[in-house]
């Protein structure tokens, strides 16, 4: 009986405790927001997370503190925080490519729908398909034709299981390219080193890393893997235009909230973020200087649709990844 009474009191206390929370959306946010960044300090995901949190802070009038919780391609942070208290005071900044490729490779067992999606708020300047400047091929078609002529001799350095590997798979499945795929590191800089050192013939790395080598004439970019040409590099064609329509790897930066976060809070955050991305000149200048990014911000519905499409695209190659 006594136990029952305790339980009752406890339940009552819980209800009382929960009551103010139900009305909390109106005055949200009223305290510090913690933004968990799934990748390490200094990288592109971190830069975008920190930039948006700094500008959010100005708009929302409360502190937005970024914590980097790193490891296993972001899956540590995403697993740990997907079931965090859904009160809008803990949100996660990550990149959607990690989310989708971790699920496709079996590293994680959940996708974007384990979260409330706030916004897809940025797009990386694009992975480029790179060869050394003295390579005999000048575009993607020539490269693929060369691999068919001499199968399994032209080495494509990728991160096994990563987005560069998926790119290799797409060329193999769709266009019958016959690359010899080898591991050359999860870090784009490591793949660049291998390419420059002559240990691999072709690799895939972000434009920012390749830029100085393209300009100094050591490396040439055959195409970008973005779905559209990067405005900063109008003469680098996309893989889509070069005859491989499925070869689209867009690294999207995304803000997520734990599942169950009230819709009002998600909508308010989303609207604020999209407004910053589209209308804040400081934001536009910062992403351009850092990473040649163009503003790209989607509302909740468009973000979900974009993530869904990317997930399906990745999952269609999942069976080759596991």
């Amino acid at each position: 009986m006594k136990k029952f009474a305790t339980a009752l009191t406890f339940a009552a206390a819980l209800t009382v405790g929960a009551a103010p929370a139900a009305f909390a959306e109106d005055d949200y946010p009223s305290q510090t927001i913690t933004m968990i960044c799934s990748h390490g300090a200094g990288g592109d995901t971190d830069y975008n997370t920190r930039l948006i949190s700094r500008l959010l802070e100005k708009r929302l009038g409360v502190s937005v503190v970024v914590n980097n919780v790193t490891g296993a391609n972001g899956s540590i942070a995403l697993t740990q925080y997907k079931d965090e208290k859904p009160d809008g005071y803990t949100i996660v900044g990550t990149n959607a490519m990690s989310l989708a490729s971790n699920e496709a490779s079996g590293l994680s067992d959940f996708g974007y729908d384990a979260f409330e999606v706030i916004s897809v708020y940025g797009k990386q300047c694009g992975e480029n398909l790179l060869v050394r400047a003295d390579a005999p091929y000048n575009n993607l078609e020539e490269l693929i034709a060369a691999t068919q002529k001499d199968p399994d001799t032209i080495t494509l350095g990728v991160a096994m299981g990563g987005s560069s590997y998926i790119a290799g798979l797409i060329m193999q499945m769709d266009k019958d390219a016959k690359f010899a795929m080898v591991d050359a590191g999860g870090d784009g800089a490591e793949r660049m080193t291998s390419l420059l050192g002559g240990h691999i013939d072709v690799t895939i790395a972000p434009y920012t890393l390749a830029k100085e080598y393209i300009e100094s004439g050591k490396v040439k970019s055959l195409c970008t893997l973005m779905s559209d040409r990067l405005p900063a590099t109008p003469d680098i064609p996309t893989a889509r235009e070069s005859g491989v329509p499925n070869l689209m790897i867009d690294t999207l930066y995304v803000l997520l909230a734990p599942k169950g976060t009230p819709k009002e809070i998600v909508d308010k955050l989303s609207a604020t973020v999209v407004d910053i991305v589209n209308n804040d000149p400081e934001y536009k200048e910062a992403i351009m200087n850092f990473n040649f990014q163009e503003p790209y911000g989607l509302n909740v519905e468009d973000s979900i649709a974009r993530l869904k499409a990317q997930r399906e695209h990745m999952m269609s190659y999942a069976k080759y990844l596991q």
């Binding site: 300090a41 200094g42 990288g43 870090d187 800089a189 490591e190 660049m192 080193t193 050192g197 100085e212």
Partner: peptide
Amino acid sequence: MVHQIAPGPLIFDK
């Protein structure tokens, strides 16, 4: 590594 200086052959370039 914390400060994003990747040791390796390209360190003088990067």
